[in-house]
């Protein structure tokens, strides 16, 4: 099995789906000639030509909306946002048009579009470029929100996203682009809506998504090594649909829950999870549900401080110990 980076795994998924379905088009700023702002789409123009790999002007409302319109006629655009932070420029297109048109047409119109790109802080680019909009987007029925934590998941989930008949918002992380994983030679798909237990355990359930999964795994390792605590790490993989069953099964096993996310805490993903768990598994809980998230302020620029604003293994560790106290 070859080892591929997260970036290469996404590229492989694009290549396979571009080969599979002539309706798949990759579109976005700098995706073709420039080879991708983060080199995810490197080499695709050469391989597939300018009809399939399309450079756009800096015009998110225009080209995202154009992709949505084209998808209504059966094109399957995979739109790259250089940063998911730029979704706000195309907000009306994404969350009025893509999210609503199937519903408002009584199921007559479909939007098989994927919008993908990095959605993370931690790169010292300030608040405008560091948004984590998974909670905002997931608040809109009609869209799916996927946040892969590993190269393996990114490939299988992106292939499913491209084949999905509804809009899928695929949120990557620039800090993970270099992370490697074993990727099988044979094709595989990961269904959207299935969480994954990244590390089994019995004493504590840590629920996370995206890069927070990696942070949580690091904390879990310290918990085991230094404290003899066995933490189970559940990777949500998608925020909507949310795999409630896998989360609840883990809660019923460990009876203690820590929610970790790089999202902001206020109305964040953890708030939704926390409500869901207390509602459906209240009697299973031996301790209050705790959360670790980004510190509740716009993303700070100052590099050492931004590293602390995001969840760190140390912060996760401290919260885990409090949950187990």
């Amino acid at each position: 099995m070859p080892s591929l980076s997260y970036r290469e795994a996404i590229r492989m998924a694009l290549i396979e789906e571009l080969h599979r379905d002539p309706n798949v088009v990759v579109m976005g700023e700098e995706v073709a000639q420039f080879n991708g702002a983060y080199k995810v789409t490197e080499g695709l123009l050469e391989k597939f030509g300018p009809k399939r790999i399309v450079d756009t002007p800096i015009s998110e409302a225009g080209f995202v909306g154009l992709g949505i319109g084209a998808s209504m006629l059966g094109i399957r655009p995979v739109i790259e946002l250089m940063f998911w932070s730029f979704y706000s420029v195309a907000f009306d297109q994404i969350l009025n048009n893509a999210a609503n048109v199937r519903y408002m047409s009584g199921g007559q119109i479909h939007c098989p579009i994927v919008i993908r790109g990095p959605a993370n802080g931690g790169t010292n680019v300030g608040a405008t470029h560091s948004h984590t909009p998974e909670n905002v987007c997931a608040n809109h029925p009609g869209v799916k929100v996927v946040c892969p934590a590993t190269a393996y998941d990114a490939k299988g989930l992106l292939k499913s996203a491209i084949r999905d008949n509804d809009p899928v918002f695929f949120m990557e992380n620039t800090l993970l682009y270099g992370d490697r994983a074993e990727i099988p030679d044979e094709e595989y798909l990961i269904p959207i809506g299935q969480a994954n237990i990244k590390r089994p355990g019995i004493d504590l359930t840590i629920v996370a998504h995206g890069r927070a999964v990696i942070t949580s795994l690091a904390a879990a390792q310290i918990l085991e090594r230094d404290y003899d605590i066995s933490a189970e790490v559940v990777d949500l993989r998608s925020i909507r649909p949310l795999d409630e069953a896998t989360v609840l099964a883990s809660v019923r096993k460990t009876h203690r829950v820590l929610l970790v996310e790089e999202n902001k805490p206020f109305c964040g993903v953890g708030a939704q999870l926390s409500h869901m768990i207390q509602e459906q598994a209240f009697d299973e809980l031996d301790a209050p549900i705790r959360r670790v998230s980004s510190i509740d302020a716009p993303a700070i620029y100052s590099p050492p401080l931004e590293a602390e604003q995001l969840p760190t293994p140390q912060r996760v560790l401290r919260a885990a110990l409090e949950t187990l106290r």
Binding site: G65, L66, G69, A70, M72, L73, I75, D92, Q93, N97
Partner: peptide
């Protein structure tokens, strides 16, 4: 808001 969609329909054609 519908104008990008209409442009996309033309793109699909």
């Amino acid at each position: 808001g519908q104008i990008p969609l209409g442009t996309g329909i033309a793109y699909a054609l």
